[in-house]
């Protein structure tokens, strides 16, 4: 199987405080990786390192044949801009902005694909609404559709289910599973370990003292899993 992302001795520290140290793992094509860990354990930071955003790290991240414009990302809910004038459709389509074939206009194929995703996430009716006038959960669905548009090979999701109602959560997991079956690699940060484990084949659990990386079947035997279970 082809290795898409290989992380070697990855360490990150902010102002001298280590977030995590010496992470080593490999993500293969077609994997569905679930990343778990307490608040502040460095899950989002790790994702930003993989995405090549401005985080200073030591160690190495190697990419096997994927470029930035084949990656989709759903950021952790937080700094969405309040008063930005943009319609839902404009934002969903902006998932295609990094693609080579995107020119002055988005192609009709891209538009169709975007509408498809919006259909799945049940937001087609909001197409022309202003993004900032939507509810938190609706905004989350819009940003998820944008991530899906961008994800040709890899999809990274940072706590995708926060703020979604239970039917949206199910739709989301089903949609992601379908994408994964079609060959797209999924990396998902989640606090909802039960559902995460249902679909994932691998788990990365980061905690203060160390980390676990391996198959799902190995993970459920570890202390990490027991602790996370007890925590719920």
């Amino acid at each position: 199987m082809k290795t898409l992302i290989e992380v070697e001795n990855l360490s990150v520290a902010f102002e001298g405080n280590a977030v995590f140290k010496n992470l080593n793992f490999k993500i293969n094509e077609g994997d569905y990786l679930c990343i778990a860990g307490e608040n502040g354990s460095g899950k989002t930071t790790l994702m930003k390192c993989i995405l090549g955003l401005d985080v200073k790290y030591s160690g190495a991240i190697k990419y096997g044949g994927i470029t930035k414009n084949s990656i989709g990302w759903l950021p952790q809910r937080s700094e969405t801009k309040r008063d930005f004038p943009a319609s839902v459709f404009e934002i969903v389509l902006s998932g295609f902005a990094g693609k080579k074939e995107t020119g002055l206009f988005y192609s009709s194929k891209q538009k169709k694909q975007a509408l498809n995703y919006m259909e799945t996430m049940e937001i087609s009716g909001l197409k022309n609404r202003c993004f900032s006038s939507l509810s938190g959960g609706q905004q989350q669905r819009v940003l998820l559709c944008r991530a899906l548009c961008a994800a040709d090979r890899v999809l990274l999701l940072d706590e995708p289910v926060t703020g979604l109602d239970s039917s949206a959560v199910n739709e989301l997991y089903t949609a992601i599973q379908r994408l994964n079956k079609s060959g797209i690699t999924v990396i998902m940060i989640t606090h909802d370990i039960c559902s995460g484990l249902k679909y994932a084949n691998k788990v990365l659990h980061i905690s203060e003292g160390g980390y676990f990386f391996g198959e799902k079947s190995e993970y459920i035997l570890t202390e990490y899993y027991k602790k996370a279970q007890g925590g719920i």
């Binding site: 990656i71 950021p75 902005a97 002055l104 206009f105």
Partner: peptide
């Protein structure tokens, strides 16, 4: 503006997302 309209929008709406996805 004509050539990069869509990319400018992406980079303005969400700089991090745009940078992460190849803009």
């Amino acid at each position: 503006y004509l050539l990069f309209y869509n990319r400018l929008f992406a980079a303005t709406f969400d700089e991090n997302f745009a940078a992460a996805t190849g803009v």
